[in-house]
Design a protein around this nucleic acid. Structure first.
Ligand SMILES: [Mn+2]
Ligand SMILES: [Mn+2]
Ligand SMILES: [Mn+2]
Ligand SMILES: [Mn+2]
Lengths: 218, 218
DNA sequence: AATTTATTTTAGGCAAATCTAAATTTATTT
DNA sequence: AAATAAATTTAGATTTGCCTAAAATAAATT
């Protein structure tokens, strides 16, 4: 049970977990997310199947096994705890933590992560508002109301962003939108699915469809 | 200049640095320290030479270049800062920090290490009493008086241990000897180079040659 | 239903880091 | 100064993770 996995294996497992949330998971999408080629993904799928982390056969769909899901949640736990540490203690910016956590998440000591968790006072969400699985791999389910689907004229709080893309985070920083920011939808434009919002007290912004789909509010 | 090195390369460079402190450096000693075989060390020496981190030719001696030494000091900086963090903030024991830092030291972000340094208030020594190189790679030179060579009847402070071997650290923990512990040499026994010491106020211990050579005092 | 296009898998290769076994060189004894 | 022993290097393999190009399969069009 104390099996160790390689950095590559862990990155694949985590990506599979994230991508299959969003429905179907193709070899192409998987390799795309990992900056590899489809042929490489196929190689890895064979190995992950061998290790009973996924179920898959040539041309058939990819599913995490219970074992694979458990591993994925553990990696996500490490990733998000390190992100929280980087943001909260070392004062890194929103858009800088992800890349560093991508490396730190592979340091494997269980004791390290549990002590880090305690040191940070068991945070519930990472700096992007994403929930942090606990030591048993339980992850609180989060409502996924996108700003794109939100009702008009109702004050909403930004609780998460749907992507960690640096370009998105930069843009949000420019607009001064972060976790906790209050937003109200004023008007929808069917032409391009853009919307006009009120941010904070007095500022009015015009947000593209891409942005409204990336903001998760409550 | 933003060259990235592999985990294996970094481990070799660090070991070469440490081992050549203690005089001559053989391929066998190097591979021994890294738990590999001499043939593997030779392979790596070729690569490190190629990258101008060491000077070496078949059967000739191994020397770090200026570039190699700089890299070594940078890795040692990362290693010792993480050790300090693990000990000071996460309350790991003396003998647990080394193995984890061995992994953390390879996370490459310069900004991460400098922010960590600041967060820890620029510590001067790691939990084993070893000096931490600064951001420019300067490492304060440390007096290396071994308890084995120390004068009789003089109160001495333990400032470092010469090895991170778990077995040694366990033994020291058993004797309740740590950094800062005051020790006084009472008597030497030529028979086996062992010594009798007074530790703290009232306790008297008999220490083997292996231990007296591993304790650095001031 | 047949054809074309897109996706995925297989085949064959390469670089990194390791190994064992054999060859070479250096060091130590007689 | 040989002979023997020890250390080191080379030769040849293996595993992991990736690649390109070709083959196989599935999906979309005509
Ligand atoms: Mn990663
Ligand atoms: Mn995150
Ligand atoms: Mn290491
Ligand atoms: Mn140390």
């Amino acid at each position: 049970m104390l099996t160790k996995y390689s950095v590559a294996e862990e990155n694949y497992i985590k990506s599979i977990f994230h991508l299959q949330e969003g429905g179907a998971l193709s070899t192409g999408a998987l390799s795309g997310a990992l900056n590899t080629k489809p042929a490489s993904a196929t190689d890895m799928l064979k190995k992950l199947k061998e290790k009973k982390l996924i179920s898959w056969s040539p041309y058939k769909s990819i599913q995490l096994t219970a074992k694979g899901k458990k591993l994925a949640l553990d990696i996500i736990r490490r990733h998000r705890l390190w992100e929280f540490f980087l943001s909260e203690k070392l004062h890194f910016e929103w858009d800088e933590v992800h890349a560093i956590a991508e490396e730190l998440e592979h340091v494997s000591s269980k004791k390290l992560i549990d002590k880090l968790d305690a040191y940070l006072h068991f945070p519930q969400v990472d700096p992007h508002g994403d929930p942090i699985p606990d030591a048993q791999g339980k992850m609180p389910h989060q409502e996924q109301l996108r700003l794109a689907q939100a009702p008009l004229n109702k004050p909403l709080r930004v609780v998460a962003v749907a992507s960690q893309e640096i370009k998105l985070l930069e843009l949000l920083k420019h607009f001064d939108i972060k976790l906790g920011t209050m937003i109200e939808v004023i008007k929808r434009f069917d032409f391009d699915e853009s919307i006009e919002v009120k941010v904070g007290k007095n500022k009015t912004l015009h947000l593209s469809e891409a942005i409204t789909k990336s903001l998760i509010v409550k």
